[in-house]
Every structure is written in C-alpha cells, then in structure tokens.
Simulated scan of single mutants.
Amino acid sequence: MISLSLKKIALITNGTLYGADLLINEIVIDTKKIIPGCLFIALIGRKFDAHIFIHDALKKKCAAFVTQKNIKPHVPYIIVENTSIALGQIAGWVRKKTKAKILAITGSCGKTSVKEMTASILRKNGNTISTIDNLNNNIGVPMTLLQLKQEHKYGVIELGASKPGEIAYTSNISQPDIILINNIHCAHLQGFKSLLGVSKAKSEIFSGLKPNSTVIINLDSHHFSQWKKDIKNSNILFFSIKKKNIVIFFVVILKFIYMAHLLRCIHRVEK
C-alpha cells in the first residue's frame, strides 16, 4: 500500500490520534496476519469484536491501532466513530492517489470467474491487483484497494452484495473507470425480495462511476431500460449470447490494453 502517517490516517477518518506519529506501510484486520510495524484496525461485526484481540496484536509487535474504544495501549492509536467505515475511508483515499485504471465487476453469478480471467489478461500488460478469491463485500473491497501502489496499472474489483446499499458503498470507494454487469438472476432473494430488487442492487455500481467512463452490460439480462438514467455521459457497450451485433467483453479489455500500449509508445517517441 501507499505509505501513510498516523496523522494523515486520523485526518482521513475524522479520528483522533493519541500518541506519537508513525509512518504506516501495512494495514491489517486479522491478528493472524500481523507483521511488526503494521496498523491494526479493530473491526466490529454482528458476531465479533476485534478489540478483544488487541493484546494479541501487541504481542506480535503491531505498531498502532484504529479503534472505536479508548483502550489506552502503550502504542499510538486512533479513535474513530466506526472502524469499518474508517477502513473504507482509508481505502478510498489510497484509490484516489493512484493512477491505476479500475474495472469493477458485479452480477448474480460468474463474476469471480470473469474477474480472474480479466485480471489474468491485464497482468500481461502491467502490474494488476484483483479481488482475492470472492472477498467482494464492504471489508474485502477496501482490503483489495489498499494493495494499490503507484506502480499499479490496473485493478479488477469484484463487487458483491446480499442486501441493498452494499454495492453503492463499495462502488463509491472504488471509483471505477470501467463497469461490467455480468448478468441478473434470482440470487440472495432473502435480502433483495425479487428479481427487480436484485436489478436495483446491481445498478448501485453506477453510483461510483467516474465521468466519461465505460459501462459494459449483458443485454440478455433485460434490465437496461431501468438503468439508462443512471449511466448518462458514459460510453455504453453491450454483449449478448442471444442477440446479434454483440460486443464481447474480453474484446473490450484487449482494446483497453492496446490503447494503453499505444499511448506508452507515443510517450517514448516524444522523449
């Protein structure tokens, strides 16, 4: 990740820093993955509270903490209102500080496979990060974005959800340059209630879309008419198994790589 001082992290998260300022090069949310000198963010979920592991983190030489509680360890710490939100705020800041082109993928099924294939193609042309396995929620997406460094050229981010609002959150953090909705099917109906609910949830991905970006839509999903108002001022491409004159998604990716390569060659000639 990009190095950050604790003062800067406190500013990004609207938190309060207690103790000395330090430079942080690694952020961890799992005590099993702690390395000396890292920042540990103590997340709180429905069934867990990572604050109980702070003493374990200290034993492993964690340098500092982000917490929701005034625990007063013997190392610097930042108190924030919500540690999960703080994680997203830091990841969003890191994303904005890099020049990497971000491609965000969502859909009811197949998105992990498409993500892996896309990332494999892009790695042939430059440093690329991608979502690890299917860690595509409000925790997994920020942790993926935190991997970004200045040398990264691409990021392939999978956005998943089990209820409304989740993709809007991760899309705004990711600020994608290209968006793909792989398909719409009846999935997670307990959270979305209906196929229309699924469609609306997936369309939340447009909320983080950068200006003059590209949207790629599966026409076989039959939901484009509902999304038109959300994707104005974007380059819209389609693909379909059933319809003629389709644009295949991976052709778009190859074109994306070609243009990047062409710009690099032009830059070399100008030098």
Rank of each mutant, 00 (worst) to 15 (best):
I2D: 07
L4N: 03
K7H: 06
I9P: 00
L11V: 03
L11I: 06
T13Y: 05
L22M: 09
I24A: 06
V28H: 09
D30A: 03
K32T: 02
K33N: 05
I35V: 07
C38G: 10
L39T: 07
F40H: 09
F40G: 08
G45I: 00
R46M: 01
D49P: 00
A50Q: 09
I52Q: 10
F53H: 14
D56W: 09
D56V: 02
L58V: 01
K60F: 13
K60C: 06
K60P: 05
K61C: 04
C62D: 08
T67R: 02
V75S: 06
I78E: 07
I79W: 01
T83N: 10
S84P: 00
S84D: 02
A86K: 07
L87D: 01
G88H: 12
Q89P: 09
Q89K: 15
I90S: 11
V94Q: 10
V94C: 12
V94Y: 10
K96V: 03
K97D: 07
I102C: 05
I102D: 03
I105L: 12
T106H: 01
T106W: 05
S108V: 14
S108W: 11
G110Q: 08
G110Y: 08
K111E: 09
T112G: 09
S113E: 10
K115Y: 13
E116Y: 06
A119G: 12
A119N: 11
S120V: 04
I121F: 10
L122Q: 03
N125V: 04
G126C: 14
L135E: 14
N136A: 07
N138W: 05
I139M: 14
V141C: 01
M143Q: 02
T144F: 13
L145N: 13
L146H: 04
Q147D: 00
H152W: 06
Y154V: 01
G155M: 10
G155D: 09
G155W: 13
I157C: 07
E158F: 10
E158A: 08
E158V: 00
L159M: 07
G160N: 13
S162A: 04
P164L: 04
G165T: 13
I173E: 03
I173W: 09
P176M: 12
I181T: 11
N182S: 14
N183D: 04
N183R: 13
H188S: 11
H188F: 08
L189W: 12
G191D: 12
K193Q: 09
K193W: 06
S194R: 14
L195M: 09
K200L: 01
A201D: 07
K202H: 00
E204Y: 07
E204V: 02
I205V: 04
I205C: 02
S207P: 08
L209N: 02
N212K: 15
S213M: 08
N218L: 06
F224P: 06
F224I: 13
Q226W: 09
K228F: 09
D230Y: 06
D230T: 03
I231V: 05
I231S: 02
S240H: 03
K242G: 08
K243H: 14
K243I: 00
K244W: 00
I246Y: 03
V247F: 15
V247H: 15
I248H: 07
F250Y: 12
V251L: 10
V252C: 07
I253F: 01
M259A: 00
A260I: 03
A260W: 11
A260K: 09
A260F: 05
H261L: 08
H261P: 01
L262I: 13
H267G: 08
H267L: 14
H267C: 15
V269R: 04
V269E: 03
V269G: 00
